[in-house]
Amino acid sequence: MKSTSDLVALIDQHLLSQSGAVIDYPFGPEPTVYKVAGKMFAWIAVREDTPVLTVKAAPADVEFLVGEFPSITPGYHMNKRHWITIRMDGQLQRGMLEQLASASYHLVVSGLSKAQQSALK
């Protein structure tokens, strides 16, 4: 198992590998916010000495994931129906974190105009 900081670096890389993804700091030095076409699709911060990843999810998925995984809670400082916060404490595999991050990206992109979506391809 990789260290927590290695996992954060790998998730950061994955988030930035999404077409058009950029980092922003609209709230100060933390959290690191990931946006596409000006819309946030993820952020990473440290809460209670543990890195957390917050991503968007479909409401039915939010309910399932929060109920199924102790390390997933409703989105910290976000709409609890549409966002989840994941403690990156080793309970969830890197692949699952990447899947949830990619799903968040695609949810946000699907809400963009056709022209914005086309520009990302």
Score class of each variant (00 low, 15 high):
2 K>H: 07
2 K>P: 11
2 K>W: 09
2 K>D: 11
6 D>F: 01
6 D>A: 13
10 L>Y: 01
13 Q>A: 13
15 L>Y: 07
22 V>T: 15
22 V>H: 07
24 D>A: 15
24 D>C: 02
25 Y>S: 02
27 F>S: 01
28 G>N: 10
29 P>A: 13
30 E>F: 04
31 P>Q: 10
34 Y>A: 09
34 Y>D: 06
35 K>E: 01
36 V>S: 04
38 G>K: 05
39 K>M: 04
40 M>H: 07
41 F>T: 01
43 W>N: 13
47 R>Y: 12
49 D>I: 02
52 V>C: 14
52 V>Q: 12
53 L>A: 07
53 L>C: 06
54 T>D: 10
54 T>Y: 06
55 V>G: 08
55 V>M: 08
56 K>T: 02
58 A>H: 14
59 P>K: 14
60 A>D: 15
62 V>W: 12
62 V>F: 12
62 V>H: 11
63 E>L: 15
66 V>C: 15
66 V>Y: 12
67 G>D: 09
69 F>N: 02
70 P>V: 12
70 P>C: 03
72 I>A: 01
72 I>E: 00
73 T>W: 01
73 T>Q: 14
75 G>C: 06
78 M>G: 03
78 M>F: 09
80 K>V: 01
80 K>N: 02
81 R>P: 00
82 H>T: 06
92 L>W: 09
92 L>D: 02
92 L>A: 03
93 Q>H: 12
95 G>Q: 14
96 M>H: 10
97 L>E: 08
98 E>W: 10
101 A>K: 06
103 A>F: 05
104 S>L: 07
105 Y>V: 07
107 L>E: 05
108 V>S: 02
109 V>R: 10
112 L>A: 05
112 L>W: 07
114 K>Y: 03
115 A>K: 15
115 A>G: 07
116 Q>N: 09
116 Q>M: 13
117 Q>N: 02
118 S>D: 11
121 K>A: 14
